[in-house]
Every structure is written in C-alpha cells, then in structure tokens.
C-alpha cells in the first residue's frame, strides 16, 4: 500500500533530522537550549503516545514532569544519587503516579477524563507548593549533573547534550516499538471502535491504563532529564499550563505522526526562547517599535501560533508535510481514492 519511494523518503528525512540534531551544537546551537528542546521533545512524545493512540487528552502530565524532576533533583541533592539512578527515579515515580492517576481517570472519556486528570494534577501542584522538599516558591536550585555511569562528566554542556540526545533517542525508538507492537495494534483498534473491541473479548480499560502508565513514566523521565540538564525545577513545571504546552506542541507538530511532537517541541521551545531577539529584529526591519516588546508577550504569541495552527494547518506541520508528500508521490487516479468515494 505504502509506496517504496515514500518509505525511502521517510527513512531519509528521519536520517536528516537525526544528523541535524547531532550537528546542531557545532552549528551554533547553545547546548543548554538544545537540552531544553530535547527534554520538551521527549515530554511531547510521551504525551502524544496517550493522545495520539487513545484519543485521551490529559491535562495531568505536568504533574509527572514536575514530580519526576523534583524527585530526581531531591535525590541528587539529598542522597547524592548518580545521574542514572536519578533518571530511573524520575521514570519510576512517573510510572507509579501514572498508574494511580490512570486508574482513577481512565474509565471516563472526553472532557470528563481531561477534567479528572486536571483536578488530580492540581492536587499534586498544591502538594508541591506546601512540601518543604520541593523548595516551594523558590523551587529546587543548583542540582548538580554529576558523572553518568561513572565515566561521562555531565558538567560539560556538550556531554550533557549528547547524553540527553541518546536518552531521547532511546525513548523515541521505544515509543515507535510500542506503536508497532501487538499492544499498539490493540490500542489503535480500541480507539477505532471500542464497542467492537469489547465484543471481541477485549477489556479496553486495561489497555488504556497501560498506555497511560507508559506515557506517564516517559514524562517522569523527561522531567528528571530536564532537572539534571538545566539544574533546577520550579513550580511552573508542575503547573497545568505545562500540560497545555505539551498539547500545543503535539498539535502544532502533527497529531498521529511519530515525529510531530519532536518538531512541535523544536519549533515552540525555540520560538519561546528566541522571540525576544525575533521581536528586536522585526522592529529594526519594519521600524515599528511595538515589535521590540514581543519578548514580554510569549503567551500571546503562543496563542496566535495555536489559532493559526487550528485554522490553517489542522494536521500540524508533519501531518501536512506527510499529506503533501503522499499527494506528490501517488498518481491522481488510484484505487484507494476511488474506494473513498464509495
């Protein structure tokens, strides 16, 4: 069904994307910004595993990201954990929270599911405000990166960048495997037609709970990675807006495509960080002073990006690109398009 040229092109573009990520720090990308982008890309991919393959939009993922980060950071500061153990702690706490939150929310769908996850995440948020271990309003600062596996010194930004890239890549391949496993196929079938899946003897809730837990674990890992890479965790990581961020990245990048969330994260995090410079540039270019203040209105710009995305390219960047490539590669009168008319 899928043409060979399409498959080759796809492989090629993944190769180019990987090369670009490998070469980015040498081409002038500030490694710490790179680390941030990669962490958010992992976060968005984990979020998308749930949304893209079950249709469940969670507003609770900030809790996994934040607590994953807090646990890793606290572990390093208080118990001087090694980075690999801190990462595992983040992953583990994500899994545990995912299991509990999933168990409580998974039986509902649509907006009810979203509201339950939001409520539970707010509960976690207020716990984080109150507990002394999180540093409250100040957050956890000065988390040292340590030495990975006792050999790789992460204090070096370049080392940290490539370690993050490697972990992110492993997680991405893991997600790709999950999607193309017997479990992944069950997931897709249940999303297509839940009643039919039940009538074939499946318990949809169990599958959804497992996806939710996997998604939460990877989010916890992303949080731990971010805490180690950036050296701090703040309340904004557990704030529900962070969950909204993941949703935005997924939608801008392209729902239902594996690479979409990565691209969405790259675009949005880069935009968020570079918007001040962009504004100054625009004001110099056009002579309109107002543009220079753009850096102070990040949220507004994000809102505009979201509106434009929903109005003009609903399938997201990768979704539109994919559709475009398919259109170009397939001759106009194919069997499949004929069937669509029937």
């Amino acid at each position: 069904m899928m043409s060979r040229r399409y498959a080759n092109l796809r492989r090629l573009s993944y190769g180019v994307l990987l090369l670009a990520m490998l070469a980015a720090p040498w081409a002038g990308l500030y490694p710490v910004l790179g680390i941030k982008i990669l962490c958010y890309a992992l976060f968005a991919c984990a979020f998308h595993l749930l949304l893209g393959y079950t249709g469940l939009a969670s507003l609770g993922h900030a809790a996994f990201l934040g607590v994953g980060g807090y646990m890793a950071g606290y572990g390093i500061k208080a118990w001087s954990l090694s980075p690999e153990l801190a990462l595992l702690t983040g992953l583990g706490i994500g899994a545990l929270m995912g299991l509990v939150m999933g168990y409580l929310s998974i039986r509902r769908s649509g907006i009810y599911f979203t509201m339950i996850t939001l409520a539970l995440a707010q509960l976690v948020y207020f716990l984080c405000v109150q507990m002394p271990q999180t540093g409250g309003e100040d957050g956890l600062q000065g988390i040292s990166r340590g030495i990975l596996f006792g050999i790789i010194d992460l204090q070096n930004d370049m080392n940290m960048y490539y370690a993050t890239l490697a972990i992110g890549l492993i997680a991405f391949l893991f997600i790709a495997r999950v999607v193309r496993s017997p479990f992944g196929q069950s997931m897709i079938a249940i999303k297509d037609n839940q009643a039919r899946a039940i009538s074939l003897g499946y318990h949809p809730d169990r599958y959804k709970l497992l996806v939710f837990t996997l998604s939460a674990s990877l989010t916890g890992l992303a949080g731990a990675l971010k805490a180690i890479g950036l050296g701090f965790v703040t309340l904004s990581d557990v704030h529900w807006m962070t969950s909204g961020h993941a949703l935005l990245m997924t939608l801008v990048g392209g729902l239902g495509t594996l690479s979409g969330p990565v691209v969405g994260a790259v675009v949005l995090v880069a935009l968020e960080n570079k918007i001040g410079q962009l504004g100054v540039m625009l004001s110099q270019l056009t002579g309109i002073n107002w543009f220079a203040t753009l850096g102070e209105s990040v949220i507004m710009v994000m809102g505009i990006v979201f509106v434009v995305c929903v109005l003009t390219f609903r399938r997201g960047i990768m979704g539109e690109l994919d559709a475009f490539v398919r259109r170009v590669l397939t001759p106009t009168s194919t069997r499949s398009s004929k069937h669509d008319d029937e």
Partner: peptide, 12 residues
C-alpha cells in the same frame, strides 16, 4: 500477546 508492548508486531 496483546499486552506485549515491547515485541514487534511481526509475532502476529
């Protein structure tokens, strides 16, 4: 094998 998220769907 329905819960085997770590196996390839080639087992099917």
């Amino acid at each position: 094998v329905s819960f085997f998220f770590w196996r390839s769907d080639r087992v099917l």
